[in-house]
Amino acid sequence: MHAPPRLRHAVLATLCAGLLAATGCARNAPDGGLGTEGTAGAGEILLQPAAAHGPDPFTASTVRRSGAAASATPSHRAPAPEGSGPHTLPGSTPGLYGGVRSVSSCDVARQIRLLAADPARQKAFARAAGVPAAEVAGFLRGLTPVVLRADTRVTDHGFRDGAATAFPAVLQGGTAVLVDGRGLPRVRCACGNPLGRLAGADGVRGPERGEAWTGYDPARTVVVAPAARALAELLVVDSAHGRWIARPTGDEGARDRAPAEPPPYAPETDITGPLPEVSPSPSARPKPETPAPEDCPPTGTTPPGEAVVAPREPGAATDCPVPSGEPTGGRPEPFPGIPTDEPTGTPADPDAPPEDLVPLMTDEPQTSIRLPWREDGGRPPGDGRGTVHG
Results as ranks from 00 to 15, higher is better:
Arg205Trp: 04
Pro321Trp: 15
Val222Trp: 01
Ala227His: 03
His53Ala: 14
Pro332Ser: 14
Ala120Trp: 10
Thr367Val: 10
Ala228Gln: 06
Pro286Met: 11
Ala13Gln: 11
Pro145Lys: 10
Pro336Cys: 03
Ala212Thr: 05
Arg182Glu: 06
Pro168Cys: 03
Val322Asn: 14
Val358Asn: 04
Asp151Trp: 12
Pro119Val: 08
Glu211Arg: 15
Thr367Ile: 11
Lys123Phe: 07
Ala126Asp: 08
Pro286Tyr: 12
Gly138Glu: 01
Val223His: 08
Ala307Phe: 03
Gly345Ile: 00
Gly200Trp: 08
Arg247Lys: 04
Thr362Gln: 06
Val278Asn: 04
Asp349Leu: 07
Ser92Ile: 03
Pro359His: 08
Pro226Arg: 00
Phe139Val: 03
Ala190Phe: 13
Leu360Gly: 05
Val146Pro: 06
Ala13Val: 10
Pro218His: 00
Gly192Gln: 04
Glu82Cys: 09
Gly305Asn: 14
Gly174Asp: 03
Asp156Tyr: 03
Ala164Val: 07
Arg243Leu: 15
Gly35Ile: 15
Thr165Phe: 03
Ser281Trp: 05
Ala352Leu: 08
Thr302Ala: 14
Arg110Gly: 00
Gly95Glu: 11
Ala219Gln: 10
Thr249Phe: 01
Leu140Ile: 13
Ala164Cys: 07
Leu20Arg: 10
Cys320Gln: 04
Ala227Pro: 02
Ala26Trp: 10
Asp156Asn: 05
Thr144Pro: 05
Arg149Cys: 02
Gly24Cys: 11
Ala230Leu: 08
Thr249Asp: 00
Arg209Pro: 00
Gly192Phe: 08
Gly337Leu: 15
Thr299Leu: 10
Val204Trp: 03
Thr387Trp: 14
Leu34Ser: 12
Val222Asn: 02
Asp31Glu: 13
Thr39Pro: 02
Val147Ala: 02
Leu96Met: 11
Arg229His: 10
Pro336Leu: 08
Pro5Tyr: 12
Leu171Met: 04
Gly98Ala: 09
Ala117Met: 05
Ala29Phe: 02
Ala219Cys: 09
Gly24Asn: 10
Ala51His: 13
Arg312Ile: 06
Ala169Leu: 05
Ala150Trp: 00
Asp349Ser: 11
Ser283Asn: 10
Asp217Gly: 02
Arg65His: 11
Thr175Asp: 06
Leu148Gln: 01
Gly315Leu: 07
Ala134Cys: 00
